[in-house]
Each structure stands twice: as C-alpha cells, then as structure tokens.
C-alpha cells in the first residue's frame, strides 16, 4: 500500500505528538493504546490499529521512566509496527515482534536526544544571566521538538518506503516458524511488564495480595472492574486495621482488652 501525501503528513504529525508524549509522560500519547489507534485511523483501518494498541499496551504495561532510568520506547514501537501491519500487510503477531527491537532502538535514541539536550540546558543558563524569559522558553521547547523529531523522522521514512517492493519482499521472507513462534511468545511476553511493575513497588511484605489476586482470577470469571473494587476494599481495610497507623489513638484500650481476652483463653485452656 502506497501512502498519499496527506497521509504522510498526518503520520508525521501523529508520530511527532507521540514522540513528545514519550519524553513528557503526561498526556500518554506515546502509549500504544493512543499512538496505534491514531496511526490506524490515518491508514484507514482504525480497528486494526486499536487491536495492535491493546496488544502492545499489555506488553508495555510496566515500561516506565524511573529516576534516570529510561524505559523501552513505546512511541516508536507503536507507530512503526502499526504501519507495518496495516500498510505492509503483516500479521498482528509479526507486528508485535517487530515492535520490540524498535522499542530498544527508540530507547537508545531517546538517551541520545537527552544527551544532546544538555546543550539547551546550557543555553538556558546564558539566557538566565541576561534575564531573558523568552529565550528560556525557546530552549525548553526546542528540546521538546528534538524529541518529537526523534520519533517522527524514522516513522516517516518507514511510511514512505512501505509501498516499495523491496520492503514487502523483506517482510514476506520471514519464515512461518518465526511468525508462529512469535505469536505464541506474544501470549506470555506480557509477564515482563507485570514483573517490572511488581519489581518497582519493592514491597515484598505486600505480596500476599498479589497471590490472592492470582488465585481469585484462576477460579472466577470476574472482570477487571471487579478486581479493581476488591483491591480497593482490601487496601482500605488493610490501612484501617494496620496498627502502624493507629498507635496513638487506640493503643491503650486495645492492649487492655487484648490482655483480657488472653486471660479468658488461658482460663478456658486451664479448664
């Protein structure tokens, strides 16, 4: 499928917005759910875009920037993989598989851009010495533009050459054992994202709640909303009953009543 000029411009804009979202991490335009859907919309097959977005979102669930550690880049992975699936006529499984090296490439590119941005930081220092507010604004926004181009340029290149025979032949040359295997891996690759979230929480003492969620899911047909409500109730009850938060107010009476109960129990046992 050869893309029209208007489609290429729209792809450039959407991937620029995804690129900005990736560094800002505010509006979440870099998340697969949003970026794949918009890319799909431009290519004339939004439903496929939404499905890729949902699949990729589950894999990327735990991809997050913590402190100075960069996550794999979901922006570049989302835009290019959607183009490969819809305009390059690949299966969704293959698209997801190609998205992973793209996420790694995007991660390297963002680290590069964030290093280049040091230059803008120093320009801003110079503007601060002059008291030039507009200059500082431009430094900040200029750095943001670089991050937008980081995703928009590679995506545009892929979109431009997707219609050519060479790319098509290359994609079609992938043997079925690879695509089949990737599809199977797609079923359990999501655990990496879950593991990232669990790892980040660093709360081993709260892991019983994880196992409870696991077992309830194994033997019921509850949906996510139900799990959300149960989880919230558990959290509230845990906080309310936790002695750590109730020391000052309840300590004295609780101690005496507990002591009383113990005595009763002792008496019972003596009998």
């Amino acid at each position: 499928m050869v893309l029209s000029g208007a489609q290429l411009i729209a792809i450039f804009i959407v991937s620029a917005i995804a690129g900005m979202g990736s560094v800002l991490d505010e509006f979440q335009t870099h998340r697969p759910l949003i970026a794949c859907t918009l890319t799909g919309l431009i290519l004339g097959d939004m439903t496929t875009g939404i499905i890729i977005g949902g699949t990729l979102e589950m894999i990327a669930l735990g991809w997050m920037n913590i402190g100075a550690a960069m996550a794999p880049d979901s922006a570049l992975a989302s835009t290019i993989s959607t183009i490969l699936v819809i305009a390059g006529h690949q299966s969704i499984g293959a698209g997801i598989a190609i998205a992973m090296p793209l996420a790694a490439a995007g991660q390297v590119l963002t680290i590069l851009c964030r290093t280049l941005t040091v230059f803008f930081q120093h320009r801003a220092d110079a503007f601060a010495r002059e008291g030039n507010l507009r200059g500082i604004d431009l430094c900040h926004l200029g750095a943001l533009v670089i991050q937008a181009l980081r995703v928009a340029v590679p995506t545009l290149l892929v979109a431009m050459y997707i219609g050519t025979g060479a790319v098509q032949t290359l994609l079609d040359a992938i043997p079925p054992v690879i695509t089949g295997g990737l599809q199977i891996a797609g079923g359990f690759i999501v655990v990496v994202g879950y593991a990232m979230v669990i790892n980040m929480m660093q709360a081993n003492y709260l892991m019983p709640f994880f196992f409870l969620g696991f077992v309830i899911a194994a033997f019921t047909k509850f949906n996510l909303v139900a799990f959300g409500v149960i989880g919230l109730v558990l959290a509230i009850v845990y906080i309310q009953l936790n002695p750590k938060y109730n020391k000052t107010a309840v300590a004295a009476p609780a101690a005496s009543s507990a002591g009383g109960k113990d005595d009763d129990l002792d008496d019972d046992l003596d009998d």
Binding site: G187, V197, I198, G213, A217, F227, G228, G231, L232, Y245
Partner: peptide
C-alpha cells in the same frame, strides 16, 4: 507524616492485587 505512606501502601496493595489477576487472566501458555 504517615498520610502519604498510607496512600502509597494502599495503592501498592491495589496494584499488586490487580497484577496477580492479570498474570493469571491475561497470559496464555499451553
């Protein structure tokens, strides 16, 4: 103070509980 600690701990419980459900429901391995 412990106000923020309460919120963080509560959020962690909710998050871990849902992660447990997701590990079970939204994976497939055969």
């Amino acid at each position: 103070g412990n106000k923020l600690q309460k919120i963080t701990e509560g959020a962690s419980i909710l998050g871990l509980f849902v992660m447990g459900a997701l590990v079970n429901k939204w994976t497939s391995m055969n």
